[in-house]
Design a binder for these strands. Structure first.
Lengths: 230, 230
DNA sequence: TAGATTGTTAATCGATTAACAATC
DNA sequence: TAGATTGTTAATCGATTAACAATC
């Protein structure tokens, strides 16, 4: 949320920290994705203009976004794809390791466990937990599902940063509170409920039902439009 | 995306359609969730002030948001919880049925299939499809997984509105194109790729990796802050 | 050097918040 | 009626876009 780090890298230490808006942060993964593809395609450099056409955003926004972190381009040349890709990766913290556990080993928990490993970017799944004893003899990605009682000790012993919450909303609030007391610093929350955590603990929500409802709203709009109103 | 419908309901037909911003739409499901809980708790009415404290947004925003659709409150009284809940449900199109199919019957596809039925709001899962023949004798929620070749006919015969894409990004763009040609009107996209669809076809993206990267970014910020910068 | 394209400032646009008159 | 609270207008704030000087 602060830019000092990247200014320092470039040798220009700013005294006061400048907050980066979440709007900008939300766009970084998409830049990262497109730059990764360009890199894989062997593209060496790209201008904000060309990238803007590819991504369907304005060139102005691209330059503004990158300049929040100090500027990675060169006048008359554009941006070096590999360099920019790596810098954005660093900004996103993908060069660092994060250890996570998954709470709730149902379909969604297992889906994420598999996906996690596939899409490896420094996120290391260390454990899975569930209340359902029938799952304890099951292995997911080589890890045995454990009972919830083990979480406390496991978090301490394995230096866990992130907990992925894939449990029903009825228990999510309680479990989240426990996790925080065990020292968890971030929760990736898939339960359909807003968690109330103390300052300093991070929650990133993935409310699937909200997303589907948005789709539903927009679908109805189009339908009404097509029917020439009603 | 247009408000005429709700104005008409209230007897005030506006000639010109006013577009509702996506920022507002994105907040509707959350309102819906909180109102549902209030309803279940037997709360009869609520003021924008009280709701703002509960949801941690400004009362002003709540009133502005609702007034995009014509105003559901009463001066001196507030909002009737059940009425407001139902109206927002209608705005979101949750009173209508939507038939959907899931393309990709892996862990994530199955997770959504189960979740879908559980969280029923007019979304009816009609079929699952996969390239993996090993899954064809498998039943998910009473439905047999089918080969991809069946999609075309199935969509036509079953009047499918929505396709849920839970396949790897390598095939997602092609499949999406096919789905559009079969007449699909909306895609709920879980593949890590931006789909290019013609005007009039809706895409709602759930980019899980983007969400995790955002979490990663914010986590690093906090850590740096705690270490008193570096 | 001339041309290209960034970094950055200024202008615009849209979304959020504040204020208050309308009204239940 | 008096009090409460909405609906709505006006003010503020922030984010996006445009423009251009700096510079590679």
């Amino acid at each position: 949320m602060y830019e000092y780090k990247y200014n320092e890298i470039r040798g220009k230490i700013k005294v006061e920290e400048k907050e980066i808006s979440q709007a900008v942060i939300s766009r970084l993964p998409r830049y990262f994705r497109y730059l990764g593809e360009l890199k894989d395609d062997g593209v060496e450099r790209i201008s904000s203009q060309d990238l803007s056409e590819l991504m369907k955003v304005t060139a102005s926004q691209i330059r503004q976004d990158f300049n929040n972190f100090g500027g990675f381009g060169q006048q008359g040349y554009g941006y070096n794809v590999v360099y920019l890709y790596e810098e954005i990766g660093k900004i996103l913290g993908l060069d660092k390791e994060h250890r996570l556990i998954i709470i709730g080993a149902g379909n969604l928990g297992q889906a994420l466990a598999n996906y996690m490993n596939f899409e490896r970017r420094g996120f290391i799944m260390k454990g899975l937990f569930d209340t359902n004893a029938a799952l304890y003899d099951k292995k997911v990605r080589g890890l045995q599902v454990q009972p919830m009682e083990n979480i406390k000790q496991f978090v301490k012993e394995n230096d866990i940063d992130i907990a992925v919450l894939t449990i029903p909303k009825s228990s999510a609030v309680d479990i989240a509170e426990q996790l925080v007391s065990y020292g968890i610093k971030a929760i990736w929350n898939f339960a359909h409920v807003d968690l109330n955590v103390p300052q300093g603990v991070l929650v990133e929500n993935v409310h699937l039902s909200d997303s589907l409802m948005k789709l539903s709203y927009n679908l109805n709009c189009y339908e009404q439009k097509e029917n020439g109103t009603e």
